[in-house]
Design a protein around this nucleic acid. Structure first.
Lengths: 161, 161
DNA sequence: ATTTCAACTGAGACCGTATCGGGTGAAATG
DNA sequence: CATTTCACCCGATACGGTCTCAGTTGAAAT
């Protein structure tokens, strides 16, 4: 008698569809949009023989230079064991190397190799067309605005306030 | 000699940080923003004893009413096996039930129970404060605009054109 | 010597894929 | 027209790979 037909009355409930005003709407939208973006990027990376998690590490290495594995784990948000395996892969492919630093034998600094930089640049070239298709429905200034708004969601002012 | 310091010159490379113009920037931003949203929502749902994937199914059940498992898989984006396990959980908790429909003995429609509806509404109440904190840095009209732009990324006009 | 912090390892949970056992409808066959 | 056969579909299960987490080892600092 109560739950029988799709009752969409009362207040406002999540529907996983456009035009939703429930508190879950933004999260669902982000999920769907991220899913699309991830699919596009994974596809762009596939011909190069790496996956997103590998590329995420390369990004950090390019951004920060030689980095300790523990920091890589923090920066990529993944587990330290996971980082280890990713670095294993990168090392096997000659895209990065582990180095021991002189005064400290327990740390291993991960460093990108010239081939790694090469692949990194190649990835950017390969990713541009798909990335443009992703924002095909938006005007250039709209895409900029979207990124600006997302930045404020992703990195709240003051760290976490 | 080549790759030694964080060289951030040449064109424009992904940095996993605000103000990035590389083709990967939008994807990285979406990832980070989605991560935040998912963390917030998972946290809001925890006291109720369910996770996001369970709630995703409940959303579909509320939106569409009794639904075949195959359609649930398609609607939530996950695969059949995953849906099965989630429905197992929901059934065990009394939030949903599997029913055989008269004319077709192979299909099992999943239906939300009154308790399921109860929890669904409770989730909305619990989720509102965290959801507002998520967009705390944005003006109300900015949040609306963000959702609108995200919708156009997540659901491209014409299905996929 | 003890504490601390790095990388690593192995056990367990988790997820997606492949496969199985029905069930249905329709076409083929007499 | 009745019956058999066949291709497909659904839900369920079994399996394999992946990721996660607690614990181990070894090095440095106090």
């Amino acid at each position: 008698m109560t739950a029988d037909v799709p009752h969409q009355a009362t207040t406002s409930r999540a529907t996983d569809r456009p035009g939703d005003t429930s508190p879950f709407a933004l999260g669902l939208l982000l999920r769907q949009a991220h899913w699309r973006a991830a699919a596009v990027m994974t596809e762009a990376l596939r011909p190069l023989g790496i996956e997103l998690r590998h590329f995420a590490v390369l990004i950090v290495l390019m951004d920060r230079g030689p980095t300790v594995q523990r920091d890589l784990a923090a920066a990529t948000g993944s587990d330290k064991a996971g980082v280890m395996r990713v670095v294993d892969d990168l090392e096997r492919k000659g895209l990065a190397v582990r180095k021991t630093i002189p005064g400290d034998r327990r740390v291993r600094v991960v460093e990108i190799t010239p081939q790694g930089v090469e692949l990194f640049d190649a990835a950017h070239v390969a990713a541009e067309p798909p990335a443009e298709r992703l924002v095909a429905g938006l005007e250039p200034d709209e895409a900029e605005r979207l990124k600006e708004l997302l930045t404020r969601i992703a990195y709240p002012a003051g760290g976490e306030a």
